[in-house]
């Protein structure tokens, strides 16, 4: 309830934020605060300085750049849900964001915070992995672009350096592909016990490609490559069999929420249901 003492700074720009990250000891960015503030309150996070990026301009909103969407890192989840170019160009992003937390969380929480936090139970990282998105980050060494597959490194660990800030996310449009994000959780407000994002391209019942990614089936979101391989070039009758391979190559945790064996089982059921939904 009562955080340990810390300094507080408001960043004026991305460069200013990078400067504060570089010069202050144990500095941490504050976006919507819905992951960070709970940690501060129970003193699990004890940063020296909080750098508030809530007033940096140019980091909010979605831009339609033709082949892909450019999403500002400070765009809130509820803005993603409501954005017209998202619902046309990449509805999976909106349906995923809509399943995060509750309205209060979605109104404050940002896509950037959700990705940078590196929580294996988060929903959006999985979806961005299935979408082959790219993340643009800026640090004292300049700007670089990281593929989603390289960004989520481990348990609460990303490719972001200590002086780097995530500025935008480039999300390829999904066109005619069928998509779905299914989240298995106990209470409506709970994080995913398991989640699955699917992007399937098919014609007349024949699947040309399928991308499948899983939430909370390891320290970071993972692609279910065995399922993807089994579906490439197959027809929709292959879905049930292919989904049985959903847990192959995963390393699900056993925790209070669920045991690893149960997670493996749910991953299969959920993958089958998500593929079926995306193909219908």
């Amino acid at each position: 309830m009562i955080p340990a003492p810390f300094e507080y700074e408001v960043a004026e720009s991305v460069d200013h934020a990078v400067e504060l990250l570089t010069t202050r000891e144990d500095a941490k960015l504050l976006a919507g605060g819905h992951s960070l503030i709970p940690l501060l309150k129970v003193r699990l996070a004890r940063p020296g300085t909080l750098v508030d990026i809530g007033r940096v301009s140019g980091m909010v909103g979605v831009l339609d750049a033709g082949e892909h969407l450019v999403v500002g890192a400070m765009t809130t989840l509820s803005d993603l849900v409501a954005d017209a170019s998202v619902s046309v160009g990449c509805p999976l992003l909106a349906t995923t964001a809509a399943q995060v937390g509750d309205p209060q969380v979605r109104h404050r929480g940002t896509i950037g915070g959700s990705l940078a936090h590196g929580d294996p139970a988060s929903d959006l990282p999985t979806t961005l992995l299935a979408l082959d998105a790219e993340l643009v980050v800026r640090g004292s060494g300049g700007e670089r672009t990281i593929a989603a597959a390289d960004f989520f490194v481990g348990f609460f660990e990303t490719a972001l350096g200590p002086d780097e800030i995530l500025t935008e996310i480039r999300v390829p449009k999904t066109g005619a592909a069928g998509t779905a994000y299914l989240k298995f959780h106990h209470r409506a407000i709970d994080w995913a016990t398991v989640g699955v994002a699917v992007v399937v391209e098919s014609q007349n019942g024949s699947i040309s490609s399928a991308r499948v990614a899983l939430t909370n089936m390891g320290p970071a979101p993972v692609r279910a490559s065995a399922v993807e391989a089994a579906l490439a070039g197959a027809d929709r009758g292959a879905v049930a069999r292919a989904a049985e391979a959903a847990d192959r190559g995963t390393d699900p945790p056993s925790d209070l929420q669920a045991g690893a064996d149960y997670r493996r089982h749910i991953a299969k059921v959920l993958t089958r249901r998500a593929l079926t939904q995306a193909l219908s």
Binding site: P38, V42, H186, R187, A188, I189, D190, L256
Partner: peptide, 24 residues
């Protein structure tokens, strides 16, 4: 309320102790 082997309450928070909401 779940205790671990050492006797700590493992789910002593509103995130992990599942009080149902109106949605449930």
């Amino acid at each position: 309320a779940v205790y671990d082997e050492e006797g700590n309450l493992s789910n002593g928070s509103m995130t992990s102790y599942l009080v149902p909401t109106a949605a449930e």
